[in-house]
Design a protein around this nucleic acid. Structure first.
Lengths: 182, 182
DNA sequence: CTGAAACGGTACCGATCGGTTCCGTTCCGA
DNA sequence: TCGGAACGGAACCGATCGGTACCGTTTCAG
């Protein structure tokens, strides 16, 4: 019962932040739902802000690993990122992208949380760019940025509509985008 | 000095909510910056939630009026929505779309604020759909939804990058989208 | 001239915010 | 067996949260 305090804090905080937003979740609630003592929390993190950035860091790594895996499972083509997104959008408790939510909720561009969110998006774009290169698609950097814009648009739309439809809409746009050059 | 209390509350709240988010701005700050007495606030609004929805309602109307005006000024073609967005993105204190920010910040789908945000997006789509019809573009409903996804993607991207580039990126995607059918 | 309406200011309410401190327990390696 | 690290629990801090109640002033129509 005594071990894993840090891991429990990260796991509980991630769920609560994702479901309710960062500002809406107090330290009190994270402690009670994780079963971690107040003092233990401040032994592992300098404060709430450090917890937030740690959560975002872990989320970034696991989300990109998940995307890579799902895209590969679908065939490895860049277009398959939208098939992966569709899987996420179908979740009953889908609440959008943590990085986007962080950028809209936290105003200060220089805050560690905002920088983590920006870093995440940059890494996702790099991932998509690599997919472009693997598929021998010309101008992979430009294409990746276009796909990233479509992904973000799909994420926001899916959050609003509550269905995976936006993923297919974005996918068809991406298809016509690739077909235009061919 | 005594009149306009409601208007001052709406104006001040809109600025503060847009710049800092809804949760991050307390009633206290709205009162001090607007110069309105605490009691007067609760005479005009049943509470903070009512103020939020009133702000969103006003924002919706003025934003769509602004978009119509700017699109018309650029020529009236649906593609000109991205030229309008580019103007917004160039603002130094650009903080994205209020409706998107509301949807990401407030988790409860049934809350009045969320419903106002969803209503705003629906109305914007209707506006774009009408632009499609005016330009004799086939399948205006489908096109409008595609454009809306591109607009939301551009807004989120612009918030992240801090430049108007995303508007041009979205515009070029929209162009190839319209060219595909022709 | 009078009275009601609208107003700004302030004191106050319980609750919660993020954060600090101390205490008693549990666990584990030396 | 012993000591220290890690832990959970709770008391406590000043500050702020959204909201209520009361006060004195200003404004304006009847």
């Amino acid at each position: 019962m005594a071990v894993n305090a840090r891991a429990r804090l990260l796991s509980t905080a991630e769920s609560l932040f994702y479901a309710n937003g960062i500002h809406a979740v107090g330290v009190e609630r994270i402690l009670s739902e994780s079963g971690v003592g107040r003092a233990s929390f401040y032994r592992h993190f300098t404060g709430k802000e450090a917890l937030v950035t740690a959560v975002l860091e872990g989320r970034d790594a696991r989300w990109r690993a998940w995307l890579s895996e799902r895209v590969a499972a679908h065939g490895g083509h860049p277009l398959h990122v939208f098939d992966a997104l569709a899987e996420r959008f179908a979740a009953q408790d889908y609440r959008g992208c943590v990085a986007i939510n962080t950028m809209t909720e936290i105003a200060d561009r220089t805050s560690p949380a905002r920088e983590m969110a920006a870093l995440h998006k940059r890494r996702v774009i790099e991932l998509v760019e690599q997919l472009m290169r693997d598929a021998d698609i010309p101008e992979p950097s430009c294409r990746a940025r276009q796909f990233a814009l479509l992904m973000d648009g799909a994420i926001v739309t899916a959050l609003r509509e509550g269905t995976p439809d936006a993923a297919w809409r974005a996918r068809s746009i991406a298809e016509s985008l690739l077909a235009a050059r061919a």
